[in-house]
């Protein structure tokens, strides 16, 4: 049986696991940049792959930290801030998709204007995100029924 943590223990665990996760990610990112520098000197592809491996190890460390943490790593206010930021991003993506997709289709079909590939890729990528959001929304809603 898992012992219930006190509020103080919850805060301590949150700080402890956050620190481990930050260190893991930090070590991964720093290792990646160091190996990039080493690669520019040695020109050995193996060094690049080693850097990538270390970076992934850092990311795996982050995942393990999140998975095994006995408490949520962000409290309710931090989650609320993330939710508000997500709202802003979602509004931007929705606007870019609603305005951008029809405009891209009409303008490129008529030959009036063809946006750069990066812009078109982003807009169509946003549409994919909207579809993924719709699927996730449908799934999560189902969990409450």
């Amino acid at each position: 049986m898992t012992e219930k943590l006190t509020a103080k223990q919850q805060v301590q665990k949150r700080e402890q696991y956050s620190k481990w996760i930050n260190r893991s990610v930090g070590a991964g990112v720093v290792s990646f940049f160091i190996t990039m520098v080493v690669w520019t000197i040695t020109d050995q592809q193996l060094v690049l792959f080693a850097g990538l491996g270390l970076y992934w190890l850092g990311a795996i460390g982050m995942g393990i930290g999140y998975w095994y943490s006995p408490v949520a790593l962000r409290d309710e206010f931090e989650k609320h801030i993330e939710w508000e930021a997500n709202q802003a991003v979602s509004a931007f993506i929705a606007a870019a998709t609603i305005i951008g997709i029809p405009a891209d289709v009409v303008l490129s079909t008529t030959g009036v204007y063809t946006a750069p590939a990066a812009i078109r890729g982003a807009i169509w990528g946003y549409m994919l995100l909207v579809l993924i959001f719709g699927a996730a929304h449908w799934y999560v809603k189902g969990q409450y029924e």
Binding site: T6, A7, K8, Q10, V11, D75, E76, F77, E78, H80
Partner: peptide, 26 residues
């Protein structure tokens, strides 16, 4: 107070300044 109830200091600060409504549990 934040430590006593298991949240961050910023959370208590935001509640006191009427910037954030806490959950029912909090």
């Amino acid at each position: 107070l934040a430590t006593a109830v298991g949240v961050s200091r910023q959370t208590i600060n935001a509640i006191e300044r009427d910037r954030y409504d806490p959950s029912l549990a909090l």
